[in-house]
Computed example of a mutant assay.
Amino acid sequence: MAGCRIDHLVITAPSLGIGAAFIKEALGVDPQAGGSHPSMGTHNLLLSLGDALYLEVISIDPSLPAPDRPRWFGMDNLSDSSLPALSTWVARTADIRSAAGRSSESLGSVTPMQRGDLNWLITIPPDGLVPLDGVAPALIEWPSGVHPAARLADRGLRLVEFEIFHPDPKRVQRLLSSIDAQGIASVAASSDGTSSLSATISTPEGLRYLSSGKIIVHRQT
């Protein structure tokens, strides 16, 4: 069985400029240029979180035509007034079709994707929304020996903790177990009946916290 690991975290924003400013305020560093996803009508910025792990800031690319399908990560629901937020996460696997087939939740169709000279496979639900009330991952499979994090500068950021909150934590645990992703996230019942994600990131300026609740909390080191 091919296990899954966290590949990257996804911050959605109404524009890359707004997303970049959010990351600068939240983490104290500027993300690097990424590129465009022509088949999704989006573009991104990237920031290393260590070996084979990174943060993606993604927004709709106004220079590209709208795709003939819903955009990924629920991005068609963004408006100019939307706030940047930790909207989803992506789990890396060496066998995406096997992992998707085992998944206790429908994670979408395995879809070829491209950005510049990078090519990969990723699961995308037909409605473009994030499954399991917004906390399930997309699955991704990179070609052997290829990963975009290898191209990113190390700014001293590291993912310390990743947390998933859901009204039915056992359902989330079943999903993680079914794709062999145990131990990569802390799962807990939400206190208010909603679903959310949070990430604690170590930076040169101390620990910082990102949330799908659009809140930035500066923690003491």
Results as ranks from 00 to 15, higher is better:
56 E>N: 03
24 K>H: 11
91 A>E: 03
68 D>L: 01
98 S>D: 09
138 A>D: 02
103 S>T: 04
117 D>V: 12
45 L>G: 00
29 V>H: 11
49 L>F: 08
46 L>Y: 06
43 H>C: 00
74 G>K: 07
113 M>N: 11
51 D>C: 05
143 P>T: 14
50 G>Q: 07
144 S>A: 15
66 A>L: 14
58 I>A: 03
35 G>L: 03
20 A>P: 02
125 P>M: 11
60 I>K: 15
78 L>G: 08
132 L>W: 05
106 S>D: 13
18 I>Q: 15
100 A>E: 09
21 A>F: 03
94 A>V: 06
113 M>T: 10
18 I>E: 12
89 W>I: 10
140 I>D: 08
23 I>K: 09
135 V>M: 07
117 D>N: 14
26 A>M: 04
111 T>Q: 04
136 A>R: 02
134 G>P: 10
23 I>H: 08
22 F>L: 01
102 R>W: 06
138 A>V: 01
110 V>P: 00
74 G>S: 14
134 G>L: 10
136 A>S: 12
117 D>Q: 14
135 V>I: 15
49 L>D: 02
54 Y>N: 00
88 T>P: 09
87 S>F: 00
59 S>W: 01
34 G>T: 06
66 A>N: 14
130 V>C: 08
138 A>H: 06
141 E>Y: 10
64 L>D: 00
21 A>D: 13
50 G>I: 06
139 L>P: 04
71 R>T: 00
105 E>S: 12
47 L>A: 06
97 R>F: 08
131 P>K: 07
70 P>R: 13
146 V>E: 10
116 G>Y: 03
98 S>G: 07
36 S>E: 09
120 W>N: 00
137 P>L: 11
110 V>T: 03
56 E>A: 06
99 A>T: 13
83 L>D: 01
87 S>Q: 13
91 A>S: 14
88 T>V: 07
50 G>S: 07
96 I>C: 07
79 S>Q: 12
15 S>F: 08
112 P>D: 02
62 P>Q: 11
40 M>K: 01
103 S>A: 15
110 V>Y: 05
126 P>Q: 13
114 Q>E: 15
39 S>D: 11
121 L>W: 09
75 M>C: 12
48 S>A: 14
93 T>M: 05
108 G>A: 10
33 A>W: 07
133 D>K: 14
128 G>A: 12
139 L>H: 12
54 Y>K: 00
73 F>R: 09
84 P>E: 09
15 S>M: 07
144 S>F: 06
18 I>L: 13
143 P>N: 13
22 F>D: 01
58 I>D: 02
76 D>S: 04
26 A>F: 01
114 Q>C: 11
83 L>S: 04
81 S>G: 04
142 W>M: 13
22 F>M: 02
46 L>A: 08
53 L>G: 04
145 G>P: 04
41 G>T: 09
23 I>M: 05
146 V>P: 03
38 P>T: 04
71 R>G: 00
88 T>H: 11
83 L>A: 08
117 D>L: 12
44 N>A: 08
121 L>A: 02
72 W>M: 03
129 L>S: 15
15 S>V: 09
23 I>V: 15
42 T>H: 08
16 L>E: 04
117 D>I: 14
111 T>A: 05
47 L>K: 01
28 G>L: 12
47 L>C: 06
125 P>A: 15
76 D>R: 02
57 V>R: 04
87 S>N: 11
130 V>K: 04
105 E>C: 07
70 P>A: 13
51 D>T: 07
14 P>Y: 13
26 A>E: 00
37 H>C: 00
136 A>L: 05
